[in-house]
Amino acid sequence: MLSVCVFCGSSSGFDPAYVDTANALGRLLAAEGLTLVYGGACVGLMGAMADATLAAGGKAVGVLPDFLRRKELAHPKLTELHVVSSMHERKARMAELADGFIALPGGMGTLEEFCEIITWAQLGLHKKPCGLLNVQHYYDPLLECVSRMAEEGFLRVEHKGLVLHNDTPEGLLEDMRAFEPLRVEKWVDRKEKA
């Protein structure tokens, strides 16, 4: 794993622990020699994490749609900035550039990005580790929802293992490095395929 894509909020949230963890993750990525790939903005958790990565001597690569760059949200000091034409292209480019994925707390965009990358893993489109950095138990409801999906037959029990989670950056990186891709098909009921 040489690069990690981090999905996170363009807001800082109300709890200072969110920014503290974004800073800690940025410093850890730099210390581990991992390139940060993220949404390219200078605001919220995104900006804090990129600032911390760069201040610690790490590399930060942003991917930003042109309409957001024109709103002056682009981080001015990134190692690289990829300007793309759409949100769809942004997600595809980040997926190409990253060897693993982490979601810090965030809003609908963060949730959508993480759910899409997990879906791609479920479909076998990639075999990269995907983890939730569960700061202050932020993602507990999502983890409960994933368990409910399996209980109700909408998700194979084995696919719950695609959603790694830990409450510290160090623990999550360790979990990601130990991740073994699943070798099961997506389909819950194979009879439906026949």
Rank of each mutant, 00 (worst) to 15 (best):
94 M>S: 10
101 F>D: 13
108 M>K: 11
147 S>K: 13
88 H>T: 09
147 S>P: 06
79 T>N: 11
104 L>V: 07
144 E>V: 09
130 C>E: 03
131 G>R: 07
150 A>I: 08
82 H>M: 06
112 E>R: 02
74 A>R: 01
72 E>W: 00
96 E>C: 03
103 A>C: 06
99 D>Y: 00
80 E>G: 06
99 D>E: 12
74 A>S: 12
123 L>H: 07
125 L>R: 12
140 D>L: 02
120 W>Y: 07
68 L>Q: 07
128 K>C: 13
102 I>Y: 02
68 L>A: 04
101 F>A: 11
104 L>T: 02
104 L>A: 09
82 H>S: 09
75 H>T: 10
106 G>R: 10
85 S>K: 01
140 D>G: 03
113 E>R: 00
129 P>C: 06
115 C>V: 12
148 R>I: 11
73 L>G: 10
126 H>C: 15
146 V>R: 02
124 G>M: 07
107 G>C: 11
126 H>T: 15
119 T>N: 08
137 H>S: 15
136 Q>D: 14
75 H>L: 04
102 I>R: 04
78 L>N: 12
99 D>G: 10
131 G>I: 09
72 E>L: 00
118 I>A: 05
109 G>P: 08
69 R>Q: 14
106 G>N: 08
143 L>C: 05
131 G>H: 06
110 T>I: 09
142 L>T: 07
69 R>D: 08
143 L>T: 04
102 I>L: 13
92 A>L: 10
128 K>I: 09
128 K>A: 09
120 W>I: 04
125 L>K: 13
138 Y>Q: 11
83 V>H: 02
76 P>E: 05
127 K>T: 15
100 G>V: 08
128 K>N: 14
114 F>R: 01
94 M>W: 07
95 A>D: 11
140 D>H: 02
128 K>D: 11
113 E>W: 00
